[in-house]
Design a protein around this nucleic acid. Structure first.
Lengths: 138, 138
DNA sequence: TTTCTCGATACAACAAATGTTACGAATTAT
DNA sequence: ATAATTCGTAACATTTGTTGTATCGAGAAA
């Protein structure tokens, strides 16, 4: 998905769901499903009709991986979260108490890092490669 | 599962898979499946025949949540791991580079914490409650 | 009006986890 | 030795979540 966003940032014309589906080796409907989250969050726009499709609509500098993560998927970064914050089971409570602090710190560390990485910083590396492959034509 | 281990630590007699299944509201076969990992790792023993079942076989002080985690499940703590360490895709490489360090630190933090919590330390809280409920009879 | 595109819904295919059934092997008691 | 109990294992069913597909309607452009 990030792939697509960076591609979109390098082209003024919108991409259709079908084109994106080819890039991602998937289906136009699936593309619409996942893009819907980004559209609702305002990071991309979609227009119908001929010549329509998806266009990027955010500031690459200000949009981070955390934003994308939140818009696309859930905030479920960990496999073992603390499902039940106040369980009846005594053992569960004991485990929660023992681990909650470390979990929160680990999660915050990761989330902070996601929030530090902008799309623009990814585009730097990506852009360089694309110049080489496709030429810098416009 | 931890529940069961702590219960076993408080009773000399072995528990049958059926008894454990009742505690966990599941099936004897499912119990055997998950206990198999603990057995192979040497944290519990199982004997067949009448009067048989599962017995704890480890030092509560020395066995940590990390040990149990490794024996029971996989070491897959994170939802988004770096699946492909050296991908063809340029975007993926850029993302990996940007996040790998933070991920490793977060993972290590959590793993270290798991390794610090012994079964004995859980048993302290648990034990207290059980005395009250079941009496300390013998 | 025709064509292109997204939006949305419903359904199918697939995979993973969990639950179930069944049978064999080991152990104990009689 | 025989019977009863219990684990070990394999095969199969059920459930759940994800992904893929088909279809139809609505909006926009030529």
């Amino acid at each position: 998905m990030l792939h697509v966003l960076l591609h979109m940032a390098r082209q003024a014309k919108p991409f259709t769901s079908e084109q994106i589906g080819e890039m991602l080796k998937t289906n136009p409907v699936v593309v619409r499903r996942t893009m819907a989250g980004l559209r609702d969050a305002g990071y991309v726009t979609s227009v119908t009709g001929p010549g329509g499709g998806w266009t990027i609509a955010c500031d690459l500098e200000k949009t981070t991986l955390l934003d994308i993560q939140k818009a696309v998927g859930g905030p479920n970064l960990f496999v073992i979260g603390i499902d039940n914050p106040n369980p009846v089971c005594a053992v569960e409570r004991a485990v929660n108490a023992a681990l909650s602090e470390a979990m929160e710190r680990a999660e915050r560390m990761l989330l902070d890092r996601l929030g530090e990485v902008s799309l623009a910083s990814l585009a730097i590396h990506f852009g360089g490669l694309c110049e080489g492959n496709h030429g810098s034509a416009k």
